[in-house]
Amino acid sequence: MRRTLLAMLVLAVALAAAAAFAPGWLAFLLAVVMAKSLVVAGLVVMWRAGLISFGQALFYGVGAYGAGMLGMRWGVTDFFLITLVGAATAGVIAWVLGFLVARYRGIFFANLNLAFSMLLFGYMVKSSTFGGTDGLRAPIPTFLGYEPGDATRVGVLLVATTAVVLPLLALLHRFLDSTAGRMTTAIRDNEIRVLYLGGSVRRTIHLLVVVAAVLAGAGGAMVALAIGHIDPDVAYWTTSGEFLFVAVLAGPAHVLAAVLGTSVFEVIRTYANEYAPQFWQLILGTSLVLSMLFLPDGLWSLAGRLRRVRKEAGHV
């Protein structure tokens, strides 16, 4: 726990420095990475229990569209309020759907979530309230009453995003050490044993679904505020697939792995867009295959391997 907090502190300082000194495009990229890593962290937590969702874009989309609606309909522009509402809305929807989806496992869990997210996608495409296929404009955010100018806005956005994401990841880390959090692995390994110890598998999975949705909702709202625009693709299955991809790339070992995985992913995406846009999916697919063949426990396991190598070297 202490090491993790230290790492988070270092990360926070680095991001604050980036907010102050880095060029706008980098600060923007970092803000998006931080916000998306929250979505990924939620998937990683579910994955620890052996659950994958092809429909996490549902909650991500709810957060994003929530931001757009709050800005357009009610003139709300506060970054923190919008993020909070996005997270809460996603959480409530997940809580309701959770009564159903928590009974499902494996591919059926994945598919039921897919169906729900595609329902949202279909609705967003058709609905004129939500802008149809054109989507919505997200408000230009303010921060607890502070309205940064054009030059400083991205930096402030990065600081605010970090201020939301890192505490949430710290909380998540703490949750994973709790009895309920450790039960994730137990459920993946052997549900029958959990039941015969008197633990509730369904309730735990329901909780995981809600936790992951809250994180995805917050992430969706923050990404929408960073990019400034929302269209129905945020709820499409390929969006879910992308997040799932990053979760696998990251690995379930640690919450900060989500940040690492998302960073790598967004860097690849940025460079691919720049130099070889026609090969973007090829690069993505190949790296996915390579990581699953050679890094089954994700990027984070590289750190463990390095440590082991160093230790062995030290012995010699």
């Binding site: 703490r174 949750f175 050490d177 709790s178 009895t179 309920a180 959090g181 450790r182 008197g198 633990g199």
Partner: peptide, 10 residues
């Protein structure tokens, strides 16, 4: 495990 203890460290 109980409602109150589920969130405390294992």
């Amino acid at each position: 495990i109980g409602w109150l203890t589920a969130g405390s460290p294992l």
